[in-house]
Design a protein around this nucleic acid. Structure first.
Lengths: 203, 203
DNA sequence: CGGTATATGTAACCAGTGATTACTTTCGGA
DNA sequence: TCCGAAAGTAATCACTGGTTACATATACCG
């Protein structure tokens, strides 16, 4: 039987995925504030209780979405600085580092609500460690390249944390009045230069 | 009947303040998640509607609390590095800068929920500009002192933003697995040294 | 004083929500 | 073919955000 097409007789197929997708879209569109499990279920043509079969909790759903957020961020990284590629020289290594930061900042700006979710009370769950390279890995890669070109000193954990903090901080504060009117994109390059100069070899 | 003492016949006196206080405490105790206007009103012995006479919105209440958060942060700054005091020498200026960062980090750690509120969707409202010095002012002061002692170059807006970003970033990421197990307090000093070395005069 | 406007609070109410429960349908394998 | 688990439904509960109509107290002003 199984007639190869389960179709959607009355059940949805894989609701779990659909719910996460729905919520992810809501977050991307800045409609996370008025998200409700019921509304999600309703819009997916399913009863409220059905959703609770897949997620014990509303926050469980949000957690799942936060994880997907990290996936999306990693995908963005991969697009700008493929993980398996290598820098050609010092200038290129700098460029790549800056591009990485720029991607980070842009992501935070374009998907603010998802961003807050990722680093909010639900994000960074110590539970699942993804197999895919994380932000930290990408950063480490860039720093290693830079060190290889002698732009910076061989990176230690402290340095890596420092670089991440600086990039994360400017992402989070990009809408602060302190930055004035000009868009942060125009500042990223200078900020990156400052970061690297902190790690530059003693001269 | 009215017996000359307004007391609390049936109305509370200054409910508005009481509500903000209540919420502030809830935030400090990490109970913000299950805060509700009704519960607040209930605990204050007042009808739900009464609260809505003072705040059009739940988010209006939260906004007020976020503002108070900045007050609290400023108070913490004032406690560690009084705004009118001056650094005695280079070493002192460094110490003060580090203390400032430490205060920031500690605040974020001890009052996480309030913290998130302050920098979340409600915080940093462009509306009211407080009269009291802001984080940015304090930072500027410290940097100016450091420049005066020739520890760093005379600070430009970019530099100030950089320093803030780095400090803010490590505050926000202090619970990240990337930092490992050790408490961030032990790292703050090194991180601050890195920040300053980025701004150090060319030698 | 006494009277009135206004700030403050109450009571009742509505729609919508998170979450649970008991019951039904569908699917896939023995 | 039958049966058990998976997936979904329907009904329900306590509670929430928010509004409205009404009551009460306060302060002001002649």
């Amino acid at each position: 039987m199984v007639q190869t097409k389960p179709r959607d007789a009355h059940h949805h197929g894989n609701l779990k995925e659909a719910l996460v997708d729905y919520t992810l879209n809501a977050a991307t569109d800045g409609e996370l504030a008025d998200l409700s499990v019921r509304k999600a279920a309703r819009d997916l043509g399913v009863s409220p209780g059905a959703a609770y079969r897949h997620f014990p909790d509303k926050s469980a759903l949000l957690r799942s979405v936060a994880e997907r957020g990290f996936d999306a961020l990693a995908a963005a990284f991969e697009h700008t600085v493929p993980f398996d590629s290598v820098a050609m020289d010092a200038a290129d290594a700098r460029k790549r580092f800056t591009a990485l930061a720029m991607t980070y900042v842009t992501f935070a700006n374009a998907r603010t609500e998802l961003w807050r979710l990722m680093f909010g009370p639900f994000g960074m769950a110590p539970g699942t460690v993804s197999d895919r390279p994380s932000t930290y890995d990408w950063l480490g890669k860039c720093l290693t390249e830079l060190a290889h070109s002698d732009v910076i000193v061989p990176p230690k954990p402290d340095h890596q944390f420092f670089a991440w903090s600086a990039i994360h901080g400017m992402s989070d504060l990009q809408d602060s009045p302190a930055l004035g009117e000009k868009p942060i994109a125009s500042s990223v390059e200078r900020q990156c230069a400052l970061i690297l100069s902190a790690l530059a070899p003693h001269r």
